[in-house]
Amino acid sequence: MANEKKKRWVMVIDPSRCIDCKACDVACKRENSLVLEGRDSYRNWISSKGIEGTYPRLKQKFEPSQCQHCSNTPCEHVCPTRATYKTRDGIVRVDYKRCILCKTCITACPYDARFEQHQFKAIDKCTFCEHRIYEGKLPACVDTCPTKVRVFGDLNDPQSEVSKLLAARHWRVLKPEVGTRPNLYYIA
């Protein structure tokens, strides 16, 4: 693998397809054997402002999200023991055994993507299912999705679906003003 070209794993999300069914969340928890420890243990989520407007003129939007695997990585910067690190392909990971649970990374993350997981005695977050993607499988949230809201792939490969999507469609990222350069893209 060392000689292979570097990947840039990204996820492209089309929120207009999302029906808020929570399959991504449960699939993530099972794939990663996450113990349900309370309201706070989850790696991905679906944001919604709920039903907006006044009856009968209503709308509701859903926006699935998770760790943005930022290129400019605030959680990595603040971690005193380098427990949070970036892999060569840009995945932001937590090395559980180095984590001292100071929780500075939680306060540093503009996306509320990190949480304390007692099961690992460490801070936890989305890993892009790193254990799957090098076996050619998709992250759990991607493959389980009924309406295929998420597309995952290598942005360094111009032939990948994500490259084509980002070239062809208008997109946005979350909180661009904080300068984190996320690797989660939203079809606008």
Binding site: C21, A23, V26, K29, R30, E31, A140, T144, C145, K148
Partner: peptide, 19 residues
């Protein structure tokens, strides 16, 4: 995990199926 070749569910698994 969803069986991608199963035509009826188009390779998906909902929250309940996962749970």
């Amino acid at each position: 995990e969803p069986e991608p070749d199963f035509p009826k569910s188009r390779g998906m698994m909902c929250a309940r199926g996962n749970a």
